[in-house]
Amino acid sequence: MNVFRLVGDLSHLLAIIILLLKIWKTRSCAGVSGKSQILFSLVFITRYLDLFTNFISVYNSVMKIIYLVTSLGTVYLMYFKFKATYDSNHDTFRIEFLVVPVGGLSFLVNHDFTPLEILWTFSIYLESVAILPQLFMISKTGEAETITSHYLFALGSYRALYIVNWVYRYYTEGFFDLIAIVAGCVQTILYCDFFYLYITKVLKGKQLKLPA
């Protein structure tokens, strides 16, 4: 554990909490992509099967359980409790276009051809693109609520911090995992355009609106 990892994990947790609180306080999930949230739940379910096979630390297990419960909770709020406020007309990204190729790739490029390892690889690849339905939704409506942009910023920061963590681990422990690094870089690159808008608009107190 290093500081980049820890801050990255906390940033990830903050993102999930911001989203949950936004939905809960406003009693509305308008502007949030349910499809991205389903994909994130799928990411956590397939990755954290290792809760049953590998015990690392109390921190590790507790965080995994929190991520699982909160992401499933978000899906529940969106598709059941506040379903009437869900903006499905704008959430039209076809997730099979992500899940199918990612599934195929995780069978082809993995560290070990075993069920758990393939599911872990699937979760890493899927996470890297899971935000696309959300970004697609924003590009369709041309704007995002400020709170939604804070959510995205925290979520993007998490992966960017993980990259710094991997650089640090490579130099201090000689550890690197190519699958995680490549997927993590892809994931971070997807946020770059958003980061630019966030810094130039949201931090200056303006709402995030895409240029027409």
């Binding site: 990830h12 590998n54 590790n60 965080m63 560290h111 550890f175 995992d177």
Partner: peptide, 10 residues
């Protein structure tokens, strides 16, 4: 890579 490392990260 050691299996430990992979499951250590979230």
């Amino acid at each position: 890579p050691k299996i430990h490392d992979k499951h250590d990260e979230l």
